[in-house]
Design a protein around this nucleic acid. Structure first.
Lengths: 363, 363
DNA sequence: TTGTACGCGTTATCAC
DNA sequence: GTGATAACGCGTACAA
């Protein structure tokens, strides 16, 4: 019905084109791959035939012959987290122009799904795989790389140097968040995040603790509110637990391990009639788009998402070069201050204000 | 370095496996495709060889021989809009188990990128394509379908019946939103959205107008605040324009063409010290996850996102059957009432309240 | 149960 | 400038 081409029952091949144009198979191939070698008349006749028949190159045959594929894949941890879609954008930008198309696969936090995707991609002989793994230490990763598929870890790193990776310095991110809160006069802060098995959660906390110690503050005044996952719902729950702490020792600020948690916390605080940052100042992490767009714009530790993706793509291309040394690229995060810490009536309004006399200096 | 297998310079083929196992090529093929036909000892010997060599099936060769591919693709309009990632989830769930893997392509609202992706996918001879097009009337769509590739339009429809599609009744959605607001006593409402060339924007407005008329209200009291796009930023801008309208004829509620716009509007209203729903009640559209998680949880018109995806996948599978009739599936949306319309001090507090005596009835 | 010859669509290499 | 032919890796039919 929508068929504009003469139906052969199958899609037309170079052979069909050759027959229709009255030339040989090799000529058609030349028109496709080395147009300059073909006389203008012949070429246009061939091109005409291709258009008439609705010829489309068969990538499988091409790849089988050439041994190289024109696709790159990014196996992402969670397609519904804006952070990862921004990373994907960055990859796409780098792949564009190289006549390579990017396929996104969503493992959705499932190791099984990740493995299934990786298996399919290996069978496809994709040119390279970018991966934000469910578990950076998983043996599956070794398996894939062991087969010689160019592989780059994105937003994760492993201790060994057998892989290229791009990541962001999470410990520094934790420091930045805490330094900012200390600067704003907060002397009791909660770190909200979990589970601890996530490297990010651990590293950000480590940075936070280091900065806290550097500021000469009591370790016990940096509370940890653990969560089961980095989701909005968990953030809300943490807000309730925070509210349950006696006012005398309740943190005046919260540093959340990511923006989803921060948004949940924000919602709970505002929904229960308290104010941000008046009652609780909030710092998030990732600086996803919705952070700036929240009802109280969120202060957040920004990661260079697009650049992360772009660099990962470059690394994966470099992997194909003969004697390639794996590189671990680490980016620096940056604090973006917004109303959730700097808004009206910011700074701790009650509680044991240890005196603004200390000033914004640190350690 | 990570190479666990004896390196051949290329990835091992069935031929290599056969040699290593001391059997013939056909036997290896049988182990792969008809294991029952091979004696247990031989089979395990072959399997052993495959493991040792790190054999991975070459999907290109397989596809070339068989003519069928094991991949499905969803070309999505905007990967950073949670609505579409949820649709993708639905597709993935349907594809799972069918031993088919789903590749996501992001056209990012660019017709050129969409075309490029479609081109690559056709060359790959994917089993089917699910598409939320930049422009449903684009000729590219005809071209793809004309080549015989199973194609299903997702969240869009065309007037002709040459395609399968899944969509949601946008006119009904518009009605639901307005009926809800009229029920809550609003007699001046703004419709916020644009550009008008988007079918969704038009249809939702049409439904809104119909419901407004059915309620016996003055057409002039349903204002349209046009936007350039359905983004958070545009929503904020609309909020400013709304605030600029003299109080006597300012709408007491806004119906936004999607949740991103609604979130932007919400942010502007709250940020300027007014309250939701006290000063402005807000209804969004899509019911994305962040809608429920907003500082003032958003009333929204929910679309069955996952089901949309699931059904689209089923339709694309059905396309391969011999004499297939194209189906246009239309889902019903549903209003989810939350605090942005039902919260404390909801309902119009000022303005020409035409009397609550009219009650919540309509037309 | 196992081994062999052939074809799939494309590209590269050679002869014309 | 153009035509013929071998190869890529795998699946299948058929022969042993």
């Amino acid at each position: 019905m929508v068929d504009t081409s003469p139906s052969l029952g199958r899609s037309p091949s170079v052979k069909d084109v050759a027959a229709a144009a009255g030339v040989s198979l090799g000529t058609v191939s030349n028109v496709l791959n080395r147009p300059a070698r073909v006389s203008p008349e012949t070429r246009s006749r061939v091109e005409r035939a291709m258009a008439d028949l609705g010829f489309v190159r068969n990538e499988s045959a091409r790849q089988l012959r050439m041994g190289t594929s024109h696709t790159l894949a990014y196996v992402m941890l969670d397609a519904s987290n804006p952070f990862f879609t921004d990373v994907a954008q960055g990859i796409e930008l780098a792949a564009e122009g190289a006549d390579i198309s990017l396929f996104l696969c969503n493992s959705n936090n499932s190791a099984a799904r990740e493995e299934s995707h990786l298996g399919h991609l290996m069978q496809q002989r994709v040119q390279g795989i970018l991966l934000t793994p469910v578990d950076p230490e998983s043996a599956t990763i070794d398996l894939v790389a062991g087969r010689g598929v160019p592989l780059v870890l994105v937003d994760r790193k492993r201790d060994d140097e057998r892989y290229c990776s791009v990541a962001v310095d999470d410990e520094l991110g934790g420091r930045l968040a805490i330094e900012h809160l200390v600067d704003r006069g907060h002397r009791r802060v909660a770190y909200v995040g979990g589970p601890e098995k996530l490297g990010q959660v651990r590293d950000r906390l480590a940075g936070a603790r280091a900065a806290w110690a550097d500021a000469g503050l009591l370790a016990a005044h940096l509370t940890v509110l653990p969560t089961q996952a980095l989701t909005v719902g968990e953030g809300r729950g943490a807000g309730e637990r925070l509210a349950g702490i006696p006012a005398s020792r309740r943190p005046t600020a919260a540093f959340c391990a990511n923006d989803l948690v921060a948004l949940g916390l924000l919602q709970q605080v505002i929904g229960s009639g308290r104010s941000v940052p008046g009652d609780v100042a909030i710092v998030g992490y990732d600086d996803i788009y919705f952070a700036a767009a929240a009802a109280v714009p969120l202060t957040s530790v920004r990661q260079p998402r697009q650049e992360l993706g772009r660099t990962a793509a470059e690394l994966v291309f470099a992997e194909t070069e003969p004697d390639h040394l794996h590189r671990q690229v680490v980016f620096q995060p940056e604090l973006v201050a917004r109303a959730s810490t700097t808004g009206p009536s910011s700074g701790p309004s009650k509680g044991p204000s240890k005196g603004p006399g200390k000033g914004p200096g640190k350690g």
